[in-house]
Amino acid sequence: MTPMGKKPRTIKDLPHTPLSLPKTGSAGETGFWRTFCPVFDMSKCTGCLLCWIYCPEGCIERDEQDRPKVDFKYCKGCGVCANECPVDAIEMEREV
């Protein structure tokens, strides 16, 4: 019962229940699903990283100064980060 790291070839390669190892973009590049785009006002950002914790897709990264940076290749524009930001530093702007 070990999680799959690679594509199975036979039934013997499978774990007993679907387990998979983390991988960036296993469902493809989901960024194009976006209707609203999170725009960060970095002058307001306190670096609390609540957006990084709450992002359901794990597509907010931490830059060299440990500040949030969105990977737009995968961000679906759900707006959870904007909702959680305690200083309203994130604005959801329509892009489509």
Partner: peptide
């Protein structure tokens, strides 16, 4: 040691898990 459980399975492997 993070894993995802209950992930998507395509038709070519779903039946095998039901067989288990």
């Amino acid at each position: 040691n993070p894993v995802t459980h209950g992930s998507l399975i395509y038709p070519e492997w779903y039946m095998e898990f039901r067989y288990f």
